[in-house]
Design a protein around this nucleic acid. Structure first.
Length: 285
DNA sequence: AAGAGTGTCAACCGCCCTATT
DNA sequence: CAATAGGGCGGTTGACACTCT
């Protein structure tokens, strides 16, 4: 059962810091043959390294688009913002910071930001002072939520969420059609024609009770521009009474974690702003 | 100058997920 | 459907650098 280990320890493989020669061999090989097939790469490239080690070295250090140098203030703010939304999903956070690696961001968080957060567990005055946009109201007592048990962190790993089911009836009058894509719509366990997905929230045509927002929903969230907090001017439409009780797991839906956005949960939820998500309770993830 | 303490970050480890066979 | 390959991820470690006393 299971898998064989990536590399057995008795193959005389090199470990620890990479030498300049090893870097060159790896870089040359990847430039010539491209990424992938990491397991076989060391042999072909003439390296005495584990394939995983090669992959890591390439991704975190040798890749040509790696950005060197200190994390800028803007980047730091973005990291904080994204971490408040995503938690320790370093790869996702790194995906929003061109040239930065998940390892680098993880290290930066652990050595700088995380420490600061722990230190200022109850007092975030420093971070608040640094908030460039006074329009963005941070939650009381914590600008980006320290207590993860009650935070707005989207937990994409602990509880996998592959669908969000929204009661169709109640959506029409209250929700602005968001610029997002939708995988499929389910009606009586049958898919609905794709064209009816174009305007899911305004859908007069879709004769079904539920909208099934696929993974694209969240990838679209991640594709939003978090670096432009100043653009979030409509967030006063956010319902302050929005709470987790409005978003609850739907228990009778196979293996997928499917969540039902109940009727009243959507009142006042303007889909146009990601701030709605970051400032809402998202424990249901 | 030297030893202790602390910070940084590259690298490793083990688990997990997806695709393929 | 199960087993396996390939790869990705987050947590942790340890070597080295730096600062303090």
């Amino acid at each position: 059962m299971g898998r064989s280990p990536c590399c057995s320890n008795d193959e005389g493989l090199n470990r620890g810091a990479w030498t300049a020669m090893e870097d060159k061999l790896l870089a040359d090989y990847v430039k010539t043959h491209g990424e992938g097939k990491w397991r076989n790469l060391p042999k072909r490239a003439g390296l005495k390294r584990c394939g995983k080690s090669c992959r890591l070295r390439w991704l975190n250090y040798l890749r040509p688009d790696i950005k060197r140098g200190n994390i800028t203030h803007d980047e730091e703010e973005l990291i904080i913002r994204l971490h408040s939304l995503l938690g320790n999903r370093w790869s996702l956070i790194a995906g929003r910071l061109p040239g930065r690696t998940d390892n680098e961001i993880k290290n930066y968080w652990n050595t700088n930001l995380g420490k600061r957060f722990r230190k200022d567990n109850t007092n975030f005055s420093n971070l608040k002072k640094e908030n460039p946009n006074p329009k963005i109201q941070q939650p009381e007592g914590h600008p980006f939520k320290t207590n993860m048990n009650s935070s707005c962190v989207v937990r994409t790993k602990a509880t996998r969420c592959t669908k969000v089911v929204i009661s169709q009836q109640q959506l029409k009058p209250i929700v602005t059609p968001p610029p997002i894509s939708v995988d499929r719509v389910i009606h009586d366990d049958k898919p609905v024609e794709p064209e009816s997905l174009l305007s899911p929230f305004a859908s007069k045509e879709v004769d079904n009770d539920e909208l099934d927002l696929g993974l694209d929903f969240f990838s679209d969230i991640l594709n939003m521009d978090f670096s432009q907090p100043a653009s979030l001017e409509n967030n006063d439409t956010i319902s302050s009474s929005y709470n987790k009780s409005h978003l609850s797991p739907k228990s009778d839906h196979n293996d997928d974690q499917t969540f039902l956005l109940s009727d009243d949960s959507l009142h006042g939820w303007d889909f146009q702003s990601i701030t709605n998500l970051t400032q809402s309770e998202f424990n249901w993830f």
